[in-house]
Nucleic acid binder design. Structure first.
Lengths: 133, 133
DNA sequence: CGGAATCCTAAGAGATACTG
DNA sequence: CAGTATCTCTTAGGATTCCG
């Protein structure tokens, strides 16, 4: 059976969707620097509600991307750490992050140009996007 | 000014969010094989409502990732094509897609194991995730 | 400290029908 | 053909409060 990301039910596609989660990439990115505790992640990842962070972590744990280790102490201590599978995400994820960082200016400029033009794309006289014919 | 994906207002972060869109990666992946027309994309990308596909394409056009070229003909013909910026996404995106495809089995197995265990992660006797102390 | 339980909404996503 | 116009709906995401 060949993997096919265009098939909504293909596992590869579901993983692609996972990466699309708002916090997944950020969490993995952080964990690449080493194991982190819950509130540690919370603080660095930005403004994320505990519920949301928990959900994200659970999903990634379920997918085998990271492990959750709870120490039976008071106060509690829970450490999240990437598995080998999770670490194998390093290259793809850093690649995306690097791309985003490297192309900020180009993208910002493009947005400015787009927003500052004759607005909506119409085939009519306006010649919005680009016209040929 | 240093790019910082952890900052919600950083342009790099906004682009990361864009990649998180449900259809963005799929659309770019298709356009890497060459220019496509609207319904062409619709058919291959899977079950996507025209409204949604339009929104996705508009966002990517605004970001300078692709161009929209409308030919003033009857019937209309509109071609979408990656810009150099869009093409520069090839490596990162293929990297992610390849990762997803290559690790299907590992992930599927991990999910099975997770779902089949003593369920919820509790610090209590259950020893859900993993316990130390 | 690390969540779980609740409640809420904003927006992406989808289905349908219609038009230049 | 390539959209636009509506309307509905699901759900990721978020704010808050409480608990072991």
């Amino acid at each position: 059976m060949k993997a096919n990301v265009y098939d909504p039910d293909c596992p590869a596609r579901t993983m692609l969707d996972r990466i699309g989660d708002k916090w997944t990439v950020l969490v993995v990115l952080m964990l690449l620097d080493g194991p982190r505790r819950f509130n540690d992640l919370r603080a660095h990842v930005g403004k994320v509600a505990p519920k949301v962070l928990t959900e994200t972590l659970r999903r990634l744990e379920r997918d085998g991307v990271l492990t959750r280790t709870a120490f039976a102490e008071i106060p509690p201590r829970v450490v999240y750490e990437l598995t080998p599978l999770g670490r194998s995400l390093e290259e793809p994820i850093r690649s995306i992050a690097a791309w985003a960082e490297q192309n900020i200016e180009t993208i910002t400029a493009a947005r400015g140009a787009y927003d500052g033009r004759a607005s909506a794309p119409r085939t009519s006289p306006g010649v919005a996007s680009s016209e040929r014919g």
